[in-house]
Write a protein that binds this DNA or RNA. Structure first.
Length: 456
RNA sequence: GUGGUUGUAGCUCAGUUGGUUAGAGCGCCUGAUUGUGGUUCAGGAGGUCGUCGGUUCGAGACCGAUCUUCCACCCCA
């Protein structure tokens, strides 16, 4: 009868230590979000399917977890549709709800739905799990947390500047030094596509360009050619493959390439604005880097595109991403509402901190001392001390059973509790408490006041 | 969704061309030690070899399916 228990692939249980570490990351991000003026909202874990479907491209639709209708959901399905076995057609008939795929689209829905109650510009943050029916890999799960901060209702580029500062603030607070904030602009990509006569193939063009790091110049050219971009156009890209120098000099070179594209020029202006502001304001530990091959979320980004990569040497995909979307709420019927935002991948940040051994020791919320139980008389006496310690904000507890002392000590040892406190007949007579430091093994006799002073 | 990979005790892993009762280290339990854990010593428990089916006199090993792990694509945090 007993079945071997298991959890679905791509999901995880978290033990107390892991939860403590995750909360540390959550709290750090939350503190910075609030410092920058963002306010929290939450949305349901599942949405109506039509809210989500079609917002992330075909690939995205495939990765959305659909929720089966309740009841006798097959009864209403026409026989012909059922026997056709076409999932794309059948799914909408048997599933009307789906699990949240990211936090941005539900946020857009939220803004449109509550537009009359929202004071714009609206800065919100949201830290909730999202689900993707992806095939799991390292740092890639089917249930994971995103921590998003977005602003809607402002086209000001100062927002982009703020988000670069926010990324820097969070990763500095996490003592995760050396992350790279990559930035690009949709208008630059459009401009380049325009210049090479491939405006209608923008997505194909950028998807290929995005792989430059991974597969190299030649393969990128091959892929572009295969997607129908002319050889002449690809030749015009040559200067792009040879971009060199810092942010400002790369911008200079881009300016030459994009001189004939109005949209490209606009993108350059925006990047210049952001770069100059950041150069003036400075960053604590992160680096801002122009990356013209960066092409994420093109289904809705219209201006800046951000991606954060882990410090060099850590093998991990991006640990954050974001960008500006001029018309995300448009699909829900609210026009002219520009948004810009960033996301932190909690689970990946966890893996990076773990790999770099960068969690502080203080994440542990363990109790500071365990009272040894010598029997009901002694336990009642000890409980009074427990109560006194707790009233001084000292985390402590009494071992519940009068078990053998060895067992109780071992329990304290296993839980890595720093102190044990012994209160037996001897101590009760002298009104003292025997405090044992578990690492050194040293013991001392203390009055209650001294005990509190020592552990507080 | 495509291609590959992994699964043996709580954990990490051995297990020969298919051959008796499947092993080790660590961990766990008991005792040496009825007011002292982490060290030591003695003893002990624990596995339908991921699951289902097939080949065979005989399967942990070979074959198939399925689930799971990890990796590369695709895509993405």
């Amino acid at each position: 009868m007993a079945q071997k228990p298991s959890i679905p692939k791509g999901t995880r249980d978290f033990n107390p230590e892991q939860v403590a570490k995750r909360n540390y990351i959550f709290n750090t991000i939350q503190t910075q979000f609030e410092r920058f003026g963002f306010q929290p909202i939450e949305t349901p874990s599942f949405e109506n399917s039509d809210t989500l479907m079609g917002k992330y491209g075909d690939e995205g639709d495939r990765l959305i977890f659909k929720i089966l209708n309740s009841g006798d959901f097959l009864r209403k399905v026409e026989d012909s549709l059922y026997t056709e076995k076409n999932a794309t057609k059948l799914t909408p008939k048997i599933s009307e709800k789906a699990l949240r795929y990211d936090l941005t689209v539900p946020f857009a829905r939220y803004v449109v739905q509550h537009q009359n109650d929202i004071e714009f510009p609206f800065k919100r943050y949201q830290m909730q799990p999202v689900w993707r029916a992806d095939r799991p890999q390292k740092g890639r799960f089917r249930e994971f947390y995103q921590c998003d901060a977005d602003v809607v209702g402002s086209t000001s580029l100062w927002q982009e500047v703020e988000f670069v500062q926010l990324y820097d603030a969070v990763f500095s607070a996490l003592q995760l030094e050396g992350v790279t904030i990559k930035i690009n602009n949709r208008k630059i990509l459009s401009g380049i596509a325009e210049v090479i006569g491939a405006s209608d193939k923008l997505i194909d063009f950028t998807v290929a360009l995005d792989k430059l790091d991974k597969i190299g110049e030649e393969k990128v050219k091959e892929e572009m050619l295969a997607k129908g971009i002319s050889e002449e156009g690809i030749n015009k890209l040559q200067p792009l493959f040879e971009l060199k120098g810092n942010f400002a000099t790369q911008i200079q070179q881009l300016q030459d390439i994009l001189s004939v594209s109005e949209e490209g020029q606009k993108g350059i202006e925006e990047l210049q604005f952001i770069n100059m502001a950041i150069a003036e304001l400075g960053l604590q530990t992160a680096t801002l880097q122009l990356d013209v091959t960066l092409a994420r979320g093109l289904n809705y980004y219209t201006g800046a595109i951000f991606e954060v990569s882990a410090p060099e040497g850590v093998k991990m995909g991006s640990i954050g991403g974001g960008g500006r979307y001029d018309d995300l709420t448009g699909i829900f019927g609210l026009k002219n509402m520009s948004g810009v935002g960033i996301s932190f991948g909690l689970d990946r940040i966890y893996l990076v901190l773990e790999e770099l051994d960068a969690f502080p020791n203080t994440v542990n919320k363990n109790i500071k001392a365990l009272f040894i139980n010598f029997g009901d008389n002694e336990a009642l006496y000890a409980m009074k001390a427990v109560k006194a310690l707790r009233s001084h904000n000292i985390n402590t507890e009494l071992y519940p059973d009068a078990a053998k002392m060895g067992k109780q000590m071992k329990h304290a040892d296993k839980r890595q509790i720093p102190y044990t406190i012994l209160v037996g007949e001897k101590e009760m007579e002298s009104s003292k408490y025997t405090l044992k430091h578990m690492v050194s093994g040293e013991q001392e006799q203390l009055s209650l006041d001294k005990l509190i002073a020592k552990l507080a």
